[in-house]
Design a protein around this nucleic acid. Structure first.
Lengths: 208, 208
DNA sequence: GTCTATACACCGATAGAC
DNA sequence: GTCTATCGGTGTATAGAC
């Protein structure tokens, strides 16, 4: 008996092609908009005919689903860990907020897919949604570390989401709402009762 | 000389038909999603053939443009005026925020069109954008009345936008972020230095 | 001016040959 | 797994009836 091969080369190849397709789809989304992705163009860029894509994705929405999962996995795996953050809670929350903000604003199409329900008929599957849940759960853990009440989570996500939404929609390419990230986080920290940073002149900035 | 008729019945009729078309388009958007509006279906509902719509709108995006303008005009004309608001600034800002929030959440398709850049290739024209500018300007005036610094506007809009975005995207039909409207406004008022409401126990909640 | 009829190029998706 | 052929749909242009 030979047993099963350790590596399934066929499956590996399949997965690699899926990734290649997704990359092409993202590139198109950045150029013409998330909702304007044409499967024929995706296929063309990876050297296929359009129907061949259906060997890799059951539908266009299934492709969006994979893109959704990939984007959230990306931010989950790349975002700063608690260990790498400043010890001052206010500085830490600022840094995390800036990380999310910059990530979202850097790719408006990705922001629309991950954070808005903009594609008619597309709803992320539970599996695709899991990385997003992970991100939320890890944010809850971070709050615990920083001494922020867990029930302040929804207010925090609304704050970050709103800054990103306004920047992308009303000042694309600018920094009008990026400048509001620090004030927003300061207001948030005040509200949840975080002690003020040590008065080091650089920690709390500006107003009060 | 007879002069010109006081009313141009033809133009009136034209305008009425345009409004009828827009209403049909909104109805479809609510049923199937903003980006899934099909001109043939719009035409069917108003008793036309699809190409006839081009007598009223130069393109589908021109229809979106008119819808954009109509939605912002609607909120501009319906939102509570300063005179009708509670005299307590904190209660007033809460009420205004709730008004916007409820308006946005009541119609997610409308929210997407007015507050997100979600339709590829659609950018509101300056004329269509004007009512949105009006709303912002009137909010600035309100801030002046309430004693809120004008440069807090961007933080305020981000706050409201974020609450709406999270509610629509992550808890449609629920009230998870509606419950955060009051906390968010309290945090905002604290941050901009608004004096606390009179400790009347009822002053910040209820109709003052 | 308003509308119909027709046509075109494109879309997502499917069937079936190889 | 990939192809060709094709289906019913889309936005939109245009010619012409009334």
């Amino acid at each position: 008996m030979l047993g099963e091969p350790i590596k399934d080369r066929r499956a590996e190849r399949h997965e690699a092609t899926r990734a290649e397709i997704i990359d092409a789809a993202w590139a198109i989304a950045r150029e013409v908009g998330l909702a304007a992705i044409a499967l024929r163009e995706v296929a063309r860029r990876v050297g296929m005919q359009a129907p061949s894509l259906y060997s890799y994705f059951a539908s266009k929405n299934a492709m969006y689903d994979a893109m959704f999962a990939q984007a959230w996995s990306d931010i989950r795996d790349k975002k700063p860990s608690y260990d790498s953050l400043p010890t001052d809670p206010r500085a830490a929350i600022r840094q995390v907020a800036h990380y999310f903000f910059d990530w979202a604003v850097a790719d408006p199409a990705r922001y629309l897919l991950t954070s808005q329900r903009t594609i008619p008929g597309f709803e992320p599957s539970p599996e695709a949604y899991q990385p997003a849940v992970d991100v939320v759960n890890e944010t809850v853990e971070l709050f615990a570390h920083l001494g922020i009440p867990a029930d302040a989570l929804d207010l925090y996500t609304a704050l970050v989401a709103g800054l990103c939404a306004q920047q992308v929609a009303n000042d694309p390419g600018g920094d009008r709402w990026k400048k509001q990230v620090d004030p927003a986080m300061d207001a948030f920290c005040d509200y949840v009762g975080l002690p003020a940073s040590k008065p080091r002149r650089t920690s709390s900035r500006g107003k009060r």
